[in-house]
Design a protein around this nucleic acid. Structure first.
Lengths: 142, 142
DNA sequence: ATGCTAGAGTTGTAAATTGCAACTCAAAGA
DNA sequence: TCTTTGAGTTGCAATTTACAACTCTAGCAT
């Protein structure tokens, strides 16, 4: 198999990435934890999303999400909207403050990331982004 | 800028990856935590590596590594060898048992990952692996 | 309608992962 | 020889997470 070495390299790279995440996250979006950033981003990108959907997306326990969403809610960044007919639970949405914080953090992320990838060309960045997205799509529902 | 949307997609993908890491790791290499797997792999791949080098590589604190290496050592997977002249600290190396566990885990990883990427072609996998590696190389020393 | 089932969320509890600060120890260098 | 500095350890606390047991209620079948 030609792909075996590549699989190994890939997994090693992904695990390294994962273990560095806290450090990178702290540097990249000051003021917003990695947890907060990922949740706000996902809520913003997925209208009508509920806590259970977030749990499935990130492969986390309901209880973990419950507590983290509680924090964001009482911080005024997130809001629980009414239910949707045909589905239980409540729908999540950003507050105006949440949207503002997320936008600022996203801008900071783009700037920092652009700096770190200054010597990459546009095609490589786009390819990398698409591959990561594709990888994440396949995962989570094995 | 054309790259702005790609940067955003990339970072979102990377953070999602990071937050799923525990779950993925548990599934991928049963019996070895994500921490243990990453450390053993790195020690195996980098002869003469020391604790401080690992800390730098993973952007973690010395104390974190100290404790994690202690666990692996007392589990009989890792061994502290003598010092190297001109450099302080001691050199880490896998024991026979550590090598055996790591090899088994790596095989499991390849199998599982191959299953998850069954519909990818070899070129995409290789490209993904190289991009991740390149990204990790750039990071950590800003 | 009535009642059962199952999905959504919360809370109690415990474990794992990590960082910071203060420390010891010994090697490098002046 | 003596000072500096790098490597590692330990005390402490915060964060992140899972599992289990619970409540509540919407949806379904009878």
């Amino acid at each position: 198999m030609v792909r075996e070495p590549a699989l190994e390299e890939l997994y090693q790279g992904l695990t390294t990435l994962a273990r560095r995440a806290r450090d990178v996250g702290d540097n990249l979006h000051p003021g917003l934890t990695l947890v907060a950033y990922t949740l706000l981003t996902q809520v913003d990108a997925t209208p009508g999303i509920r806590a259970a959907d977030l749990a499935a997306h990130f492969c986390l326990d309901k209880s973990t999400l419950s507590r983290q969403l509680e924090q964001l809610t009482s911080a005024g960044l997130l809001r629980r909207e009414g239910e949707r007919p045909g589905r239980r639970g409540y729908v999540l949405a950003l507050t105006a403050a949440g949207k503002k914080h997320l936008d600022a953090a996203a801008q900071a992320v783009r700037d920092r990331l652009a700096g770190r990838l200054a010597d990459w060309d546009d095609r490589d960045i786009a390819a990398f982004a698409h591959l990561v997205t594709r990888f994440n799509h396949g995962a989570g529902h094995p």
